[in-house]
Simulated assay, not measured.
Amino acid sequence: MPEPLEQDALARALALGVLRDAAIGDRLVVRARHGDGARDALGTLASRSATTVTIDTRRGPDEVPLADVVAAKPVPPPPAPRRPRP
């Protein structure tokens, strides 16, 4: 069984691969280190540079440094809004 540090390195490598291969407009969730914890950015990939990705979230654009990325994966589109009850 891999050591925890090896697992973290593997998860990070997979996450960076997801971000590298994603097309602008793909819906993703990206988890990144933030202070003593982590934060998630859920939305569409708006831009990518050599050092950051920008995710358009409900709250606006969220620029995530690639050095802080711990995990990333594609996610399905959001559910359709519910119809109001009669």
Rank of each mutant, 00 (worst) to 15 (best):
L5M: 09
P2S: 12
I55E: 09
I55R: 00
R12A: 03
G17Q: 10
V75M: 07
I55P: 03
A11M: 07
E63C: 07
V64T: 03
R12D: 04
D62H: 15
S49R: 03
H34A: 15
P2G: 04
R83Q: 14
A41N: 05
L19Q: 12
H34W: 13
R39M: 12
E6Y: 00
T44Q: 04
L19R: 11
P65T: 02
A71D: 15
D62K: 15
V18W: 09
V29D: 02
E63P: 14
P84E: 02
L14T: 15
L5D: 13
A32V: 11
R48E: 07
L19I: 10
P77T: 00
P81M: 03
G25T: 00
P84N: 00
A15N: 10
D36M: 12
A80H: 08
T44A: 12
V30A: 06
P4W: 02
D68W: 11
T54M: 00
D40N: 14
A80G: 13
A13C: 08
V69W: 06
G35Q: 14
A11D: 13
V69H: 03
A71P: 05
A11F: 09
V53F: 09
L19P: 07
Q7L: 11
R83T: 14
A50W: 05
V18Y: 11
A23Q: 13
E63N: 08
L42R: 15
D21H: 01
T52K: 04
I55D: 09
A13R: 12
R33Y: 05
A13M: 07
D36Q: 14
R59I: 02
G37S: 13
G17H: 06
P74Y: 08
P81S: 03
S47C: 02
V53Q: 09
E63F: 01
A71I: 05
L45S: 00
I24D: 02
G17A: 10
G35H: 13
R27G: 03
S49G: 10
V29N: 05
D8W: 11
R59T: 11
P81N: 06
D40M: 08
L16S: 03
L42C: 13
T57I: 07
A80M: 04
R82F: 10
E63I: 12
P76Q: 05
E63Q: 14
G37A: 13
D40C: 11
L66R: 04
M1G: 15
P81Q: 02
R27S: 01
A50R: 14
H34E: 14
A13K: 08
R82T: 12
Q7V: 15
D62T: 13
D40E: 14
V18C: 06
T51P: 02
L14C: 12
P78C: 03
L45C: 00
L10M: 09
V69Q: 07
R39K: 13
L14E: 15
A41D: 04
P86G: 05
R59C: 01
A41W: 01
P4V: 06
